Simulated assay, not measured.
Amino acid sequence: MSGPEQRIEELGLKLPPVAAPAGAYIPAVRTGSLVYTAGQVPFVDGRFPATGKVGAEVGVEQAQELARICTLNALAAIKAEIGDLGAISRVVKVVGFVASAPDFTGQPQVLNGASELLGEIFGDAGRHVRSAVGVAVLPLDAPVEVELIVELG
C-alpha cells in the first residue's frame, strides 16, 4: 500500500469504488504528467447523504463533509487511472462547485473540507491552488462537486 493510501486508512477512511459516469465522459484522464478528474459528486454507495442548496437545506459543516466525500471519489478515479496514489507528486488544483442558496457566500469554507483532507493525506504535496464557485444547481441536486488536477512524479 502506498503512502497516501496508507494515510487514508490511518484517517479511518477508504477509497470507494469509482462511480459510473452519469454521461458521455470518463472519470479521469492522464495527459503527460497530469491527471484531471471529471467533477465528482458525493456519492456514497450509489446515493447522496444529502441533497439541496448549501445555506438552505444543507449546512456548512455537512457541506464540508460532502466535499471530503467528493475528494475521496476523485482520488478513487485517479487511482483507477494510474494504479497507485503514491505516484502523485503533488496536488495542483482543486475546483469546487457549491449549489448555493441565493444569499450564501461561504463557498470557500465548504471547499476547505476538500483542501484540508488533501493536506491530511499528502502533507505539503497536498497544498494546491483552488477555485470555489457558487452555482444555482448541480447534477441530481448534489450540494457539492469537486474536480482535481494532480501531478505525477
Results as ranks from 00 to 15, higher is better:
residue 1 M to Y: 05
residue 1 M to C: 11
residue 2 S to V: 00
residue 5 E to P: 03
residue 7 R to V: 09
residue 7 R to F: 04
residue 8 I to S: 06
residue 10 E to T: 14
residue 10 E to F: 00
residue 11 L to M: 01
residue 12 G to P: 06
residue 12 G to S: 01
residue 15 L to A: 10
residue 17 P to K: 14
residue 18 V to N: 12
residue 18 V to W: 08
residue 19 A to C: 08
residue 19 A to M: 09
residue 19 A to I: 05
residue 20 A to N: 07
residue 25 Y to V: 05
residue 27 P to Y: 11
residue 28 A to P: 00
residue 28 A to V: 00
residue 30 R to N: 02
residue 32 G to H: 11
residue 34 L to N: 15
residue 34 L to K: 15
residue 34 L to G: 09
residue 42 P to C: 03
residue 44 V to N: 12
residue 46 G to V: 11
residue 50 A to W: 05
residue 53 K to R: 15
residue 55 G to W: 04
residue 57 E to P: 11
residue 59 G to V: 06
residue 59 G to K: 10
residue 59 G to R: 05
residue 60 V to E: 07
residue 61 E to C: 09
residue 61 E to I: 06
residue 64 Q to M: 09
residue 64 Q to V: 00
residue 65 E to A: 13
residue 65 E to L: 14
residue 68 R to T: 02
residue 69 I to Q: 02
residue 69 I to Y: 02
residue 75 L to V: 05
residue 81 E to L: 10
residue 81 E to Q: 08
residue 82 I to F: 03
residue 82 I to R: 06
residue 82 I to H: 05
residue 83 G to H: 05
residue 85 L to D: 00
residue 89 S to L: 02
residue 93 K to V: 03
residue 95 V to H: 07
residue 100 S to K: 02
residue 101 A to L: 12
residue 102 P to S: 05
residue 103 D to A: 14
residue 105 T to R: 14
residue 106 G to H: 02
residue 107 Q to F: 01
residue 107 Q to H: 09
residue 109 Q to G: 08
residue 110 V to W: 00
residue 112 N to E: 15
residue 113 G to H: 09
residue 114 A to S: 15
residue 114 A to F: 07
residue 115 S to V: 15
residue 118 L to F: 00
residue 121 I to S: 13
residue 122 F to I: 00
residue 122 F to Y: 11
residue 122 F to W: 13
residue 125 A to W: 03
residue 126 G to D: 06
residue 126 G to T: 04
residue 129 V to D: 12
residue 132 A to C: 04
residue 132 A to V: 07
residue 132 A to P: 03
residue 133 V to T: 11
residue 134 G to N: 00
residue 135 V to I: 14
residue 135 V to C: 13
residue 137 V to E: 15
residue 138 L to Y: 11
residue 139 P to H: 10
residue 141 D to K: 13
residue 141 D to E: 13
residue 142 A to Q: 03
residue 143 P to I: 02
residue 143 P to L: 08
residue 143 P to D: 12
residue 144 V to M: 02
residue 144 V to Y: 07
residue 145 E to G: 08
residue 148 L to M: 04
residue 148 L to R: 04
residue 149 I to F: 11
residue 151 E to L: 08
residue 152 L to A: 13
residue 153 G to V: 13
